[in-house]
């Protein structure tokens, strides 16, 4: 009886370690294959060339500039709005049906498939609001997509601040906004930055919603420069330019039958994966560092 239990225990342990190893190894095999195929293709001209009909002359210049521009818009919208929403729900929101509705809605929004966000953007931003198939539309779409991530992590970070701090600040005669501005936000900076980084890394890899709004795959030019030679020297024309991004460029190359393009796809994949992984590692490091610093 005792021996049988022991044997079962051992069998399960073997099974679980095997299961663990298999899934991790599969993932690493996939990643290794991508790196082995793609890494040799990455050189200076790959980074600085436009897409081309010839696989060996094609590059990711317009895609990386596009990704950068779209991320800029996404961050400028999602970060302030997400933090504000998180602060409201933790510090201001009364306990009523409206707050419950907002909370349920946010967790539901987090589960909506990204391509559905793309359809909404196509119907609403591209046609109803006439923003066109532009960098602005893409940035707004992705910021809505990552909003739940930023809100949820902001709330978690704020919730970790002890109530005693709030009482102390109020006792000194501060208003609610002074409490939020001078104490709540600075103390939850670590958690909030983690959420922002994870949200943006998710946005960088998103392909589907940008395909639905009609991001072009063959863009052999850069968006308009934000700095112009004549008054007022700053132009926002680039917001309305068509664009492509790294994951769409990769999708385009994967979908072609020629193996030379598949190598380009692998190279783009290596770059894309490195960016998202580095961002996530960064988020983990930020979180650990702030956790160590907190002493309450």
């Amino acid at each position: 009886m005792w021996l049988k239990a022991k044997i079962y225990n051992f069998l399960f342990l073997t099974l679980s370690i095997a299961g663990f190893t298999i899934s991790i190894l599969t993932l690493f095999a996939l990643i290794a294959d991508l790196v082995v195929t793609g890494a040799p293709r990455i050189d200076f001209s790959f980074l600085t060339s436009f897409p081309s009909r010839n696989a060996d002359q094609a590059g990711i210049l317009s895609a990386s500039v596009g990704t950068l521009c779209v991320m800029l818009v996404t961050a400028l919208v999602a970060v302030p709005v997400g933090i504000a929403a998180g602060v409201y729900l933790e510090e201001y929101a009364p306990k009523n049906w409206l707050t419950t509705l907002i909370e349920i809605n946010i967790s539901n929004l987090a589960g909506v498939p990204s391509i559905v966000f793309g359809l909404m953007a196509l119907g609403l931003f591209v046609y109803k609001l006439s923003l066109g198939q532009s960098i602005l539309t893409a940035g707004l779409t992705l910021s809505l997509l990552i909003l739940p991530i930023v809100i949820v992590t902001t709330r978690e970070a704020i919730r970790a601040i002890p109530t005693g701090i709030r009482h102390a600040v109020y006792a000194l005669g501060a208003t609610k906004w002074q409490l939020v501005r001078d104490h709540i936000i600075p103390y939850s900076k670590g958690g909030i930055s983690t959420g922002v980084i994870i949200g943006l890394s998710r946005a960088i890899g998103e392909t589907a919603p940008l395909i639905t709004i009609g991001a072009l795959t063959f863009i052999a030019f850069l968006p308009n420069s934000p700095i112009t030679s004549h008054f007022p020297f700053i132009s926002f024309q680039w917001l309305h330019d068509p664009f492509t991004v790294l994951p769409i460029q990769m999708f385009n190359w994967v979908s072609r039958p020629q193996p030379e393009f598949h190598q380009n796809a692998a190279a783009a994949g290596v770059i894309l994966m490195s960016i998202t992984m580095i961002m996530n590692l960064g988020a983990i490091i930020v979180r650990l560092r702030f956790r160590k610093k907190v002493t309450w």
Partner: peptide, 16 residues
């Protein structure tokens, strides 16, 4: 970190 891999990369894995 593994959940951070973009799905288009997984698509590449599946097809190729």
């Amino acid at each position: 970190v593994l959940t951070a891999i973009p799905t288009v990369v997984f698509g590449y894995f599946a097809l190729l």
